[in-house]
Nucleic acid binder design. Structure first.
Length: 490
DNA sequence: ATAGGGTTAG
């Protein structure tokens, strides 16, 4: 019975491991590598590494070593083994690429990917090797992650043989791109064309897709399917079900599911915090967070975001301070929420303080943080800063949220002229949807809004009117429309 | 070796 690395090395010194290799082949080494992963024992993996150093031309053994190092959180060791291999195969590339991808080391993963394409994929294509589902699945995942969805789907359609993982990969890429209905339709096709049966991966992905597009019937059918097939007992499926009923059901559905779960993990508990927050039951959410047997930074982020959604500004700032003091891991999610909370607070000093914190911490800027920062500036009277961020924003990734924020900011801080001109520009360029135009319009005073209407087409104007219901100035607006023929205003 | 569930911006 394995208790520790010392035990193993005591019973099996290196020279013995090497003779094992000669006598019994790879089997014992592979088992020991498995044990090293299971017991999170890096040094055992390194001992195996030492034992098979001379066998590094054995591709199979080296691949297992790469996989072990990656699972043990030692990507640089994995890379070293890879670099020293004399013959790499698809498995070597696959292991390392997916390992780097999981660690968000995209540059290295993509670099390897192109290297693989040069050395393996071209050859594989010529030899018709794409029938290897592993190769195609990894290629598909990469095209999916590079937002090259059409290439991914083309590859999928060309695959002579598909495994259930191929279908799951396509569905999950579509879900990640927010194309929920397409994911549901694709898998529906799968059931009709290929004779595949969905597994617990498929069910989890599709439940997320159903929740994402509020496909309440589809989700319930998936639930029934899970019960019939027995996959309902799978933890991922149960957690995905909770997520579905959180979005398409009610608190009671979720609580019943939760209470009947024999095994729960940190994701289950975090789902409960999110559920209570989304239904406005702040105290229950807090209670659940403190009852959680294991929490991580995502759990705290869920609480923090929930405070913001429920207008509990001081509690969210308090929680953030506690997280910093207690050394709880912060992420871009954390910062986005706390910046947003400062926007709600509308205090210039606090906003500058948190702004400095974000810059100093140097969390890679992303759209969400930048948007939250801009929103915060517009709410805290820092319009000059907001303008700078607004103009710096790349024009090819137009974000309607920042348009709405800055228009509302101008309106709030006594600059209706600027608000109106941006408002007109935004709706003319089609940057903002009508819903968004309406939301920005609510921040404008009635008289200012009337000026803006002159710049709009009749259809837009009427649609806006519908959206503004029950906008307080609607009557004035109607009068205005009655008084002046719209054709004059166009 | 490939696929899965929880947290962010108006």
């Amino acid at each position: 019975m394995y208790r520790s690395r010392v035990d193993v090395l005591y019973h099996f010194p290196l020279c013995f491991v090497q003779s094992l290799l000669h006598a019994f082949g790879r089997g014992p080494i592979l088992s020991l590598l498995h044990l090293s992963v299971h017991y999170a024992d890096v040094e055992l993996a390194m001992a195996m590494h030492a034992a098979i150093l001379r066998q590094l031309e054995d591709t199979h053994l080296s691949n297992s070593l790469i996989a072990a190092y990656l699972k043990l959180g030692r990507p640089s060791y994995a890379r070293k083994v890879f670099d020293e291999m004399s013959r790499r195969d698809v498995v070597s590339y696959t292991a390392l690429i997916s390992g780097f991808a999981k660690l968000a080391r995209e540059d290295e993963a993509v670099g390897l990917f192109f290297e693989m394409r040069a050395s393996v994929h071209a050859l594989a294509t010529k030899m018709g090797y794409l029938s290897c589902t592993y190769v195609s699945n990894v290629l598909m995942e990469f095209y999916g992650k590079c937002a090259c969805l059409s290439i991914m789907l083309k590859l999928f359609d060309k695959m002579p043989q598909r495994g259930i993982a191929s279908w799951n990969t396509v569905a999950s890429c579509l879900v990640k791109e927010l194309m929920y209905e397409r994911a549901l339709v694709r898998v529906h096709d799968m059931l009709q064309t290929d004779n595949f049966r969905v597994d617990y991966f498929t069910l989890s992905i599709l439940l997320v897709a159903s929740a994402g597009c509020f496909a309440s019937m589809a989700g319930r059918e998936l639930h029934a399917h899970a019960l019939r097939s027995g996959f309902e007992t799978n933890l991922s499926v149960k957690n995905a079900l909770i997520g579905f009923y959180r979005k398409c059901g009610n608190v009671k559905n979720v609580v019943v599911l939760f209470e009947r779960m024999p095994v729960k993990d940190v994701i289950t508990w975090t789902e409960m915090v999110t559920t209570y927050m989304e239904f406005g039951l702040v105290e229950s959410a807090v209670e659940f967070l403190y009852r959680m047997p294991v929490k991580n930074c995502v759990s705290y982020n869920a609480l923090l975001a929930g405070y913001c959604q429920n207008g509990e500004v001081s509690r969210s700032l308090g929680l953030f301070c506690k997280m910093v003091e207690e050394g709880i891991e912060l992420s871009d999610f954390t910062l986005t929420s706390v910046v947003y909370a400062c926007g709600l607070l509308m205090e210039t000093k606090t906003s500058e303080q948190i702004h400095g914190f974000v810059l100093k911490f140097g969390f890679g800027s992303n759209d969400c943080i930048e948007t939250a920062l801009l929103y915060m500036c517009t709410r805290c009277g820092r319009m000059a800063d907001a303008e700078k961020m607004f103009h710096r924003w790349p024009s090819d990734q137009n974000n309607s949220i920042i348009w709405t924020s800055i228009i509302c900011g101008y309106a709030r801080h006594g600059q209706p002229d600027k608000a109106i001109s941006l408002f007109c520009l935004g709706q003319a360029e089609g940057t903002m949807t009508l819903d968004e135009v309406a939301s920005a319009a609510r921040s404008l005073r009635g008289r200012d809004l009337l000026c803006a209407c002159k710049e709009m087409t009749k259809m837009r104007c009427e649609h806006l009117l519908e959206l503004l219901n029950p906008f307080p100035w609607k009557r004035d607006y109607k009068d205005y429309l009655n008084g002046i023929p719209l054709s004059d205003a166009l």
